[in-house]
Design a protein around this nucleic acid. Structure first.
Lengths: 339, 339
DNA sequence: TTGTATGCGTTATCAT
DNA sequence: ATGATAACGCATACAA
């Protein structure tokens, strides 16, 4: 069924070695022009395609890179994935896409899986949790992966002894808090995401802390935990509305949660920004043009994907490297200045 | 560096063959319990991981499935990708994600690439163009791929002699036209996408045709071509606004284009739905909660991804199979009934 | 420069 | 049930 290099060699009347050199151009050896042409012609005639798996076995390295996300349909991850596929393509690598489907514990199996595939590098896009056991376990698996010749890069917090692209979550949240305070908001609530989620926590803490510094206190009961996704935002907003008066401003720690919050707001018969203001984080592209625009903190997600890929692919030095990524507050209609 | 099965066999004091059978459980042979335990223990001790590439070579088949999209950051594709990764995972397959980065001609190279990888199956999510040469070329490559043992499934139009998940674009567009007509719209424009894009064309033709059947004619100059993406929608809307009076209703042939159109509308100092109504197609999840909600035609994109994957994985019979997928009109605030 | 032979890590065939 | 040993498809050290 499948035509092999031997077939090509026979068809061209050369040895297997020559056929191999002619087609893949050995780094050291060179092949006489006429023979090379004959081999190439034979390959074309037989519609030969090299077997990447066999090449991987013979060469001792593959051309694939693993990408692990929590949910590829989440705009945050799909934007990062865009950057990763782009950078990987430039490096001549295939991307193996693996999704935890929102279950962080699956990261372990996935890394093992990618190790079986002998992926050259792994980019882990999902944020860490404050869970010493899970972190240690993943760090251990990644260390093994590195020992076996792989390279890994993380998007998020440098807690795994691995090269990391670190997003300026705290800076962004602080800047956002200042901007919103300047626009007159004083009665503020936060949809905080999971208490252990490091990214969620960074954003929440920095936001609340900066407001405090400005003299605005966010009561504990106004900080509502929940999942880091759409439904988490909706649930949190619902319980917030059920628990007390409508706040002037609600900060959701990511845009997708803000979107879920919007659903809950509308279901309660309220509107943004008329009844309350709303802000998110990430600046996912799909939301940039909606009416009213969502105030948020922009992260250059595609660049983050590129940076993480390049980081994983660059020869690693000694200590884990950290590549910082700036964020940028983007004020839109969802948070008008308060008269 | 890497620990191999031979290492495990030696460590366990058994032959290579026994180690292989113990670890991967040969379909026919069985291994005595105590030996199996010894092998497994040795493997665990040495932190052995099977080399998937070597297995692929020896077994003659891989555990990977190729997914080709135009842009993974596009919600349409990322939702399909979600379904594909899910279904592939259930089947024990890795997903190799490949993006044309909006260049349909790259599909050819990508299929070749996936063929090199000996991917078990390929799911092509991007829509076809009315381009006989390109279609024939891709069909030829896919035929070769099939001949070499691969299976392929398409999302879109069954024009490649390949199993296809066919979305009811025409039905959806017709139903949308009826609904909007019933709500009083008579002065209608269409952001049509690329003239050769089959999906775009199906939606446009069915929409315009159904309106005609209802006695509403959409003038040719009110049908504006453009790219099938965000910027295409924005450009088309801009030229539409520049060319003549503001229409009552604009139908963009997909949601992302509608989003681009929204940008242009706002830039022109107008608003939806106050100054004009707007409808899209796809019902991408991110847009479901925005204010005002976008009227659209829902496609169960994740299910489409699952269906395409299962289709590719099911043993193919004779004639190319076609799996139909229904669409569902979803009216939201962007197209209020006209007083 | 070309060919021969060996090795890559695994599975599968064949004796035992 | 177990163990040599030959594939699998390709790359490469070595010899010619």
């Amino acid at each position: 069924m499948a035509v092999t290099l031997s077939d090509v060699a026979r068809e061209a009347g050369v040895s297997l070695a020559t056929a191999s050199r002619a087609i893949n151009g050995s780094p050291t050896r060179t092949v006489r022009a006429d023979l090379r042409d004959r081999v190439l012609a034979a390959a074309e005639r037989l519609r030969y395609t090299p077997d990447a798996n066999a090449q991987a076995v013979a060469r001792g390295r593959t051309t694939s890179l693993g990408l692990v996300v929590h949910d590829i349909a989440d705009p945050y991850f799909s934007s990062i994935a865009r950057g990763v596929t782009h950078a990987a393509g430039r490096a001549g690598l295939q991307v193996i896409l693996a999704s935890t489907e929102q279950d962080p514990s699956r990261e372990l199996e996935i890394v093992e899986l990618l190790r079986r595939q002998r992926a050259r590098a792994i980019v882990i896009a999902g944020g860490r949790h404050d869970d010493a056991d899970a972190t240690a376990a993943l760090a251990a698996v990644l260390a093994e992966y590195r020992d076996s010749g792989g390279a890994a890069a993380l998007v998020g917090q440098p807690v795994l002894g691995t090269d990391t692209v670190q997003i300026a979550n705290a800076d962004g949240a602080r800047a956002l808090a200042r901007e919103l305070h300047a626009r007159g908001y004083r009665d503020v609530a936060v949809l905080a995401g999971p208490p252990t989620h490091l990214t969620a926590r960074e954003r929440r803490e920095a936001f609340v802390d900066e407001l405090a510094r400005l003299g605005v206190r966010v009561p504990d009961e106004r900080v509502v935990a929940g999942a880091f996704d759409h439904d988490g935002g909706a649930d949190a907003m619902r319980s917030l509305l059920a628990a007390g008066p409508v706040p002037e401003l609600v900060f959701a720690v990511n845009d997708v949660m803000a979107l879920g919050a919007l659903t809950a707001v509308r279901a309660a018969g309220l509107g943004v920004p008329d009844d309350l203001a709303l802000a998110g984080f990430d600046d996912i592209t799909t939301l940039r043009d909606v009416v009213p625009g969502l105030t948020t903190v922009r992260i250059p997600l595609e660049e983050v994907g590129v940076a993480a890929t390049e980081l994983a692919l660059e020869p690693a030095g000694g200590a884990p490297r950290v590549v910082p990524v700036e964020t940028h507050v983007t004020i839109r209609e969802s948070t008008p200045a308060r008269g």
